[in-house]
Simulated scan of single mutants.
Amino acid sequence: MPNHSRPLVDQLDRRQELGAFLRSRRERVTPDEVGLPQTGRRRTPGLRREELALLAGISATWYTYLEQGREIRASEQVLESLASVLRLNRHERDHLLRLAGHHTPPTDPEPFEPLTTEVASVPLLLRPHPAYIIDGNYDVLTHNQPAADLFPNLTAPADRPPNFLRWVFLEPLARDVLADWEPEARGLLARLRALAGRHPTDPRYTRIVDELHEHSPEARSWWPRYEVQARHSGRKRLRPPGRTIPVTYTYTAFHLAEQPEQTLVIYFAEAEAEAEAGADAGAG
């Protein structure tokens, strides 16, 4: 059974996680992408350790120690060189630096600040558009009825705070509502990975990671891939209850000024947006 009392940093030693992250990224870069010739049959995908070390201008032995989780300290310059060869995006680079101790997270969980009445009522003001406010670990702090209708059983089970990650991975209806369930779920898990890396001692992240590992085979399979993303706005294809054809929704995320990891998310059906635009044009 998962041990919820242990902080994430104790369960996943930071050096071991750094090595696993580097290895996962090394395996996805092909020799062709970095200008190396293909030489014979390769036993592993991606670059070899010595190839990556050569391209980054560091010792192959030293890089091997780094990937093995040995107790060595990598300079920011070396990490930047590795990030460049591995073609890390901005969020992956930040995650690499944080794992290596160059962006040291707080040693204690940030105090949880409950929503004020004024902030909690914002989704109600946004009806008929689905809207909710989530915390950094995707607990749903408040939501309106259109959101509850669009994401059925969002508040189940009743013995714990509603959580959007739990809904996506563990609620069977989520696979019907999310027309593109797998890429949506993988992206959500990658965003959790980035947020958990910033709060390694916060038990709220430990609990949701443990719960997903215990109950979701997909989460267990995808978590070791060390994919990281930042929260963002975008588009989703959703099937509202009673609909068989997906509807494309635009969703926008706003971070709260006082609690930047609390996020207001608003959904707007694109067909509705087009109808409103046409009405505005006619009125003009």
Rank of each mutant, 00 (worst) to 15 (best):
W223D: 05
F254E: 03
P224L: 10
V228F: 06
E214Y: 02
T244S: 13
R220E: 01
E218M: 10
Y205Q: 03
G197L: 13
R235H: 15
E258V: 06
R231Q: 13
E218A: 10
T252E: 09
R239H: 09
P246M: 07
Q262C: 13
R235T: 14
T248K: 03
G242K: 01
H215E: 14
A194I: 00
R207T: 12
Y205L: 07
R231M: 06
P246R: 04
A253D: 04
P260G: 01
H213W: 12
R239I: 10
D210G: 04
E261R: 13
Q229K: 14
G242E: 13
D202T: 06
V209E: 05
D202F: 13
Q259G: 06
D210F: 02
T201K: 03
R198W: 01
E218W: 08
Y251T: 01
T250K: 04
W222Y: 15
Q259P: 00
L212S: 09
T248R: 10
P203S: 10
L256S: 04
R239L: 07
Y226G: 00
R231W: 04
P241T: 00
S233N: 05
A257K: 13
Q229C: 03
A196T: 00
R220D: 04
T206E: 12
E227M: 06
R239V: 03
R243K: 07
E227S: 13
R204K: 13
E227R: 15
Y205E: 05
R198C: 04
I208G: 03
R207H: 12
P240G: 02
A194F: 10
T250H: 12
T248W: 12
R235D: 12
I245E: 15
H255V: 00
Q259D: 12
P241I: 04
H215I: 00
L212R: 14
R231F: 06
H215D: 14
Q229L: 11
H215N: 09
E258M: 08
P240E: 06
Y251N: 02
F254S: 02
R237Y: 08
P217M: 05
A196D: 02
L212I: 14
R204C: 09
G234P: 05
L256K: 06
R237C: 15
A257M: 07
R198V: 03
W223K: 08
P241D: 06
E211L: 14
I245S: 12
Y251K: 00
A194C: 01
E258R: 15
V209F: 01
Y249D: 11
A257E: 14
S221N: 13
G234K: 05
A194Y: 05
Q259L: 07
S233I: 05
R204M: 14
E214H: 10
T252C: 06
R231L: 11
S221R: 15
A257G: 04
H255D: 04
R225V: 04
A253R: 03
I245A: 12
Q229W: 06
H232C: 09
H215G: 02
H215W: 11
P260C: 00
L238Q: 04
R231A: 11
P224N: 07
A219W: 14
I208L: 04
E211Q: 11
Q262W: 10
P260D: 00
F254W: 09
L256E: 01
P260H: 01
Y251E: 02
A230D: 13
D210P: 02
R239N: 09
P217E: 12
P240H: 02
R225C: 07
Q262Y: 15
P200W: 13
A253T: 10
A194K: 02
Y226F: 15
D202L: 08
P240T: 04
H232P: 03
I208D: 08
S221E: 14
